[in-house]
Computed example of a mutant assay.
Amino acid sequence: MAPLKHLEKENPIIDVSFRDFCSSHGILTVEDFLLHDLYELAAFAERQKNADRLKEGITLLISLIELQCRPLLNGMELLEDLQCNKHTLSTGDKGADSLLQNGLREGQLTELVGPSSSGKTQFCMQAAASVAEKHVGGVLYIDTGNSFSARRIAQYICSSSDAALVQKVMSRISCHTVFDIYTMFDTLQCLEVTLKSQGQMNVNEYRLRLLVVDSISSLITPILGGSGSQGRALMVAIGYLLKKLAHEHNIAILVTNHTVAAGEDGKTKPALGETWKSIPHVRLMLSREHNNNNCTISILKHTSMPSGQTVKTMTLKDN
């Protein structure tokens, strides 16, 4: 999260006096500002001796935030962007690719839901290997539970007997370990800066094409306790940032989520609740059959396909 102090260099009105006023209302970062009731904040500013300057600072901060918002696009522009820039990326699994109409779509956030040991991490690593090899693209794998295995990913590379090819493909995959939501914000904001600078310099070699977060629920669940709204607001903010990166930089984003009990009948549902439900473009449920290692993927939500479609997919070798 960007501290307000970082804005002062280019915007002198966001000075110590303005930041002190904001901090007295619990506002230390841009995200805090967005979560606050701005009408209430402006009303408090009216009562101060330097009211005009404080209100000018509030107005400036709002305008700076609005500048970061995407411009409105009409239907034809969106269709052209989809056809020209939003390609599909193979997951490395024929069944999953068939279900998803050729794979993960760039510009979209796909969520893979499943209980523990259902194969979510294996699916993510197989997709990472597939994108790095078949699409000659860069992959960023954000690991929140020490589950990343370079050896396992190497096993998914088709010509794994070719050591030179394995080394080349593996060099396109980067892993970053993150254990809390605030580090996640920092990681994604640094990534956004890097992607923008690469775009300005026309750096296309091994362009980042897939971002994996395994698992998003491990970061969000700890902040959702209690009756306060801050945890939900942070959850929505991280979802928005992921979708923003996907759309603006033509990245396919794959996140994993666990399941929770839905009632006394033993059924389960995706974790993180109704607020998170609206964030992913695509939601998939991964389940592992009893008495064997076969897996099934079903569509819970999709932008262009009906829910309920199911396919038999990969066979797990182990947990």
Rank of each mutant, 00 (worst) to 15 (best):
A2I: 11
P3I: 09
E8Q: 10
E8Y: 10
P12C: 03
P12G: 05
I13V: 10
I14P: 00
D15T: 11
R19E: 05
C22L: 07
H25G: 00
T29K: 01
V30H: 01
H36Y: 09
L41V: 05
A43Y: 02
A45H: 01
E46P: 01
Q48F: 05
Q48Y: 02
K49G: 07
D52F: 15
R53Y: 13
R53A: 11
R53W: 14
K55S: 06
K55N: 13
E56F: 10
T59M: 11
S63H: 12
L64H: 05
I65C: 06
L67T: 14
L67H: 15
L67K: 15
R70I: 10
G75W: 03
E77A: 04
L78N: 06
E80K: 11
E80V: 14
L82N: 07
N85C: 09
N85L: 08
K86C: 04
H87R: 07
L89Q: 00
S90N: 05
G92N: 04
K94C: 09
D97C: 01
S98C: 11
L99R: 00
Q101V: 07
G103S: 00
Q108C: 11
L109T: 08
L109S: 03
T110P: 01
L112C: 01
L112Q: 04
G114F: 08
S116M: 14
S116T: 15
S118W: 06
K120W: 10
C124L: 03
C124F: 05
A128F: 07
A129Y: 07
V131M: 08
V131Q: 03
A132R: 05
H135Q: 06
V136R: 07
V136D: 08
G138F: 08
G138Q: 05
L140F: 09
G145K: 09
N146H: 14
A150P: 12
R152E: 07
Q155G: 15
Q155I: 14
Y156T: 13
S159F: 15
S160R: 14
A163Q: 15
A164Q: 11
Q167D: 15
M170Q: 06
R172L: 04
S174Y: 14
S174M: 14
H176G: 08
H176L: 15
T177H: 12
V178A: 03
I181V: 11
M184S: 05
D186Q: 13
E192C: 02
Q198N: 13
V203D: 12
V203F: 12
Y206P: 12
L208A: 06
L211G: 02
I216C: 06
I216Q: 10
S217N: 02
L219T: 05
T221N: 13
I223R: 01
G226E: 02
S227K: 13
G231M: 04
R232E: 08
A233K: 05
I238P: 00
G239Y: 09
H249S: 02
H249A: 03
I251Y: 04
I253D: 00
I253A: 00
T256F: 02
T256E: 10
T259K: 12
V260K: 11
E264I: 13
D265Y: 06
G266N: 11
K269W: 12
A271Y: 06
T275V: 12
P280G: 02
L286E: 03
S287G: 02
H290P: 08
N291L: 14
N291S: 10
N291F: 10
N294F: 07
N294E: 10
S298A: 04
L300K: 02
L300D: 00
H302G: 00
T303M: 14
M305V: 13
M305P: 08
T310G: 04
V311E: 02
T313S: 03
L316V: 08
L316F: 08
L316C: 05
